[in-house]
Each structure stands twice: as structure tokens, then as C-alpha cells.
Amino acid sequence: MNYLCLVYYSEAAMQERGDDHWQNLNKECQSYSGGLQESGVMLDGSALQPVSTATTVRVRDGQVSVTDGPFAETKEQLAGFYLIEARDLNDAIRVASKIPPARYGSIEVRPVRDIYGESSDAVPYAEALGRR
């Protein structure tokens, strides 16, 4: 199964920790994601620019509205993501727990849904049996 690990932390608190800390954390992230890529666990991923650079786009009644900032103000902000392949949730949790910013913020682990049709081993019987 594929899982998206969304990395959140408080940008303000991270800034307070200073430049050296930031540089070291970046290096740590590079080396962890590098290892995951080599072993084929990590399919994709990236760090993100801070939320001050975010733009939110909505379409209502055919009208495009564009606003400054993230879609919601939160204590911790989305800072990056890892798309990984894992055997199951326990496996994904193991990978996520080693993402360096997990020590400061939070990692949300979400199973990826294949909207082009579920692979055969992922078909929930109950759904196929028409019980949902």
C-alpha cells in the first residue's frame, strides 16, 4: 500500500531554534529521504516553502477566487511530504516515526486511494458485496 506522510510543525517555533539547528535538520532530512529512496520505500516527496508563500484557490459558481495564505490557520503548518510504499500501517508508522521533524511537530500518515480503480488485493469484500 502507498501512504502519504504529511510533515507538520510550527514554523515560528522552528525559527526560534536558530539557523544552525535548521541547517542540521535539513541535512538530516536529506540523508533520511536519500536512504528511503535508495531502498525503494520512498516514491516521491519534497519540502515546502513556508505558508507565507501559500495561495488558496477556490471555484464557486464557476468563479475562480484566489486568496492569500493557507486554506486554514493552524498551530502547525504543512512543511513537506513523503510518499512511501509500505507493507501495512505498522510498516508506514515505522517509516514515519523516523522522519526527523517528527521530533518537533507531527506526521500525519494517510493511505493513498487509487481513484483509477483499486488494485485487486485492496478490494474490500464488504464493498464488493454491495454492503456499503
Binding site: M1, Y3, A86, R87, D88, L89, N90, D91, A92, R94, P111, P124, A126
Partner: peptide, 14 residues
Amino acid sequence: RDAGIPYEVPEGDA
């Protein structure tokens, strides 16, 4: 089912 919680007894530290 959807999040892939495995049917297993965790091993080691887990």
C-alpha cells in the same frame, strides 16, 4: 481495512 492496519502481533520494541 482502508488504512491497512495489519492483523499481526507486533515484535521487538513495538
